[in-house]
């Protein structure tokens, strides 16, 4: 067991292993997202209030979930990196940010598209749920900009980790915004008192999409983590031998 963890932590081994693990994420992701899309679009019954428009939920909610889950993964990894000086943890944090930013963008834009027919507006300034999710996008941008501005990787790791941790306060704010303040946004549908407020035929495709997006996030995270490891190890022997097998020892 210890030998396994030791090997896992060794960068060249991780670089290879990640490549072998990625299919185990991408295959379930494709299956779950395909099922969720088809069942959500064509087989789930119409919502009695929102009619067919509610089907946007199958993209919007999984995207919003990933936007927050990716941020928590980033903040926790950054914290572990700061406290235990683990380079791989900092690499995980750095790999989360661009993916999280894209899913935040997707949550915001599909929310806007959903809001147009339901609320009669694309965007409502000052709405707590909308504003806190927009702040999440800016936190990702700030994190990425800060990293890009610092050449020294370990300095960039530490500074951006502090930003990620401070920004984590926004996550419970997003989550509870619809309960703490009055918002145009509807309340929770799945995790609520009295159980999910939908029939099984609606709920299963949604859960499949959330799980599928999570597997997808894992696959892209592993891919980006490989790149982080490669860059951070660029001056080491194994990277030189791998990239230029003939030249190395001349």
């Amino acid at each position: 067991m210890w030998k396994f963890f030791h090997k896992l932590a060794s960068p060249p081994h991780f670089y290879d292993l990640a490549n072998k693990i990625i299919p185990w994420f991408i295959v379930p992701a494709i299956l779950l997202i395909t099922y969720g899309t088809i069942a959500g679009l064509f087989f789930a019954p119409m919502d009695y209030q929102q009619k067919d428009a509610f089907r946007i939920i199958y993209i919007h909610v999984p995207a919003a979930y990933i936007s927050m889950m990716a941020y928590m993964t980033m903040a926790i990894s950054a914290g572990i990196g700061l406290i235990w000086r683990m380079k791989l943890a900092h690499a995980v944090a750095a790999a989360c940010a661009p993916i999280g930013a894209w899913f935040t963008f997707l949550a915001l834009i599909t929310g806007s598209i959903w809001g147009r027919p339901m609320w009669g507006t694309w965007w409502e300034w000052g709405d707590p749920r909308l504003t806190s999710e927009l702040i999440l996008l800016f936190l990702y941008f700030g994190y990425l900009a800060l990293r890009a501005a610092i050449d020294d990787t370990s300095k960039a790791d530490r500074s951006s980790a502090v930003l990620a941790l401070v920004g984590a306060i926004n996550i419970p704010i997003i989550h509870f915004s619809v309960e703490w303040w009055s918002s145009l946004h509807q309340g929770p549908t799945i995790v609520r008192e009295g159980g999910p407020a939908m029939p099984m035929e609606m709920l299963l495709p949604l859960l499949a999409m959330i799980l599928g997006f999570t597997f997808f996030f894992g696959a892209v995270l592993l891919r980006r983590l490989r790149t982080e490891v490669l860059y951070r190890e660029r001056r080491t022997g194994w990277v030189k031998r791998m990239i230029q097998p003939a030249g190395g020892e001349a």
Binding site: K51, D52, R55, A63, P98, W102, I113, V220, R223
Partner: peptide, 28 residues
Amino acid sequence: AMGGYGYYIWSSFGLGLAVLVITVVQAR
């Protein structure tokens, strides 16, 4: 047509697919 909501629904699913593709291409 999706009961008149087709434009909203298909653009949401299209954007969803686009983001999945973009994140993979960008990582690569």
